[in-house]
Design a protein around this nucleic acid. Sequence first.
DNA 1: ATATCGATTATCT
DNA 2: GATAATCGATATG
Length: 200
Amino acid sequence: MEFYDRDPRLVARGLLGKVLVREADGEGMAGRIVEVEAYLGSDDAAAHAAAGLTPRNRVLFGPPGRSYVYFIYGNHYCLNVSCLPDGVAGGVLFRALEPLAGLEAMARNRGLTGELTERGRRLLTTGPGRLCEAMKITRARDNDLDLTMPESGIWIGDDGARRPRIAVTPRIGITKSADHPLRYIIAGNEFVSGPRSRSQ
DNA sequence: ATATCGATTATCT
DNA sequence: GATAATCGATATG
């Protein structure tokens, strides 16, 4: 799709406010995209694509609009969408969602038992590992799917919400190229990861 | 409130 | 053998 056939920085901005929809094992879930990070190609030392094409990162080098799911720290999965045309690496990491639908299913998938207070809802899909666990996204099942069509079981929709105000910060959890402003968030949104800022 | 640490494995050097 | 696009638990102010 044309939307993803662009620089990851532009795709990242465009994704904020859209809706990630998931349907798996008979459960429907959805969340508004409130936090993403752009990862570039060979010029970005923090990107998985930096060292060149490998079996693990091949989706990043493939056609745009497809899911790249990787396993990290022996514990967690993270979801990305590939950007730029076939042969050119780039992607956007989904870091946090504002839960919209299927909250009970997500809580169950996360192993949470408490009430869905505001504090509890933040534990559902705030954080890249959390949102994958809540939506039962794994590399074995969900890598290299077309995120533009519902048939994939994961796709990006647009509910016509007003364009959000966007803030830009350095990326989280990386050591290389840690200073570049490539993290994009919906300013002031409660479901962005990290400490509650109090302002904005 | 922030800081530090262990879990646990795919991937690459 | 080291590291990692994280999380949750524990310790300390």
